[in-house]
């Protein structure tokens, strides 16, 4: 009998510690599936952030490094420069990547560093108790914006995918979501492409994944998925913002919008 739900080899099988309904786990799983499908597990080194996914090194079944808050792209750069024939990815939240680590990701992209970054945008700092993140929506209540994010005093959400799509070295930039089965399938396609970009040595690749934080949003898992679709997707449009020029030329890569 065929197994319908099989654990990817690129996951250790250790139970996730994430809150019920948190989509961190889904993203872990699809990254692992991509690693399996590409057959790169034994060549892969992952770099985890500081944030709720700080224990990602317990889950991914490959060599892993725990970085300081925001510095994963710099750490990944160090690894990749020493081991250019290995596959190196970072997994980072929006506090990690878009607040404290903005410089590291922008410059890894600017150098065209041949690494893959998976960026979890859940519009809050999860781990530290639901504070405002650079991606928090205007009006969204967080523990540090109790009356809702005020544009006048705290600005408006940073659109990381759009920002990085202006950087020449960032050759693959996409934003995806995981709020329903169809979006999960598209997310997986994008993440796989982001690894393929690295395998082809083309440059920096990043996939921004809109993700839920039911705990800090104060919603049930299902409500959180709905909230994401209704409130985040309009502000953070989904799609591929950049694809390698090479892919258009020789017709590789599906090019399908995701």
């Amino acid at each position: 009998m065929a197994k319908i739900f099989q654990r990817p080899a690129a996951l250790t099988g250790k139970a996730f510690h994430y809150c019920p309904g948190c989509t961190h786990g889904i993203v872990h799983r699809i990254i692992a599936q991509c690693i399996d499908e590409l057959g790169i597990r034994e060549d892969t080194i992952g770099v985890c952030p500081v944030g709720c996914s700080v224990f990602a090194y317990e889950y991914f079944n490959c060599d892993m490094i725990e970085a300081a808050h925001g510095r994963a792209p710099a750490v990944a750069t160090g690894v990749k420069r020493v081991l250019p024939d290995r596959v190196v990815f970072t997994y980072q939240g929006d506090g990690d990547l878009a607040a404290i680590g903005t410089a590291e990701v922008v410059h890894a992209a600017a150098r065209g560093e041949k690494i893959t970054t998976i960026f979890i945008n859940n519009a809050v700092f999860g781990m530290t108790g639901g504070q405002m993140a650079p991606t928090t929506l205007v009006g969204q209540k967080t523990t540090t914006t109790p009356k809702g994010r005020d544009r006048e005093t705290t600005g408006s959400p940073l659109r990381v995918a759009e920002l990085l799509s202006t950087v020449e070295g960032a050759v693959y930039v996409a934003r995806v979501s995981v709020h329903n089965p169809a979006s999960v399938i598209r997310a997986k396609k994008a993440i796989k492409k982001a690894f393929e970009v690295q395998l082809q040595g083309l440059g920096f690749a990043i996939v921004e994944v809109l993700s839920t934080c039911p705990t800090n949003w104060g919603l049930s898992p299902v409500e959180a998925l709905e909230w994401l679709e209704k409130n985040m997707v309009p502000i953070f449009p989904l799609g591929e913002f950049r694809k390698p020029a090479e892919w258009d030329k020789n017709g590789t890569g599906e090019g399908a919008s995701c």
Binding site: A67, A74, T77, G78, K80
Partner: peptide, 26 residues
């Protein structure tokens, strides 16, 4: 070898961390 000018000392030391993790004299 590799000489890389980082965007800051913060970044530089973390690149060192990565390269050392990868087993290099750095």
């Amino acid at each position: 070898g590799v000489y890389l000018q980082a965007e800051s000392e913060v970044s530089a030391i973390n690149m060192v961390y990565g390269a050392a993790a990868a087993g290099a004299r750095v």
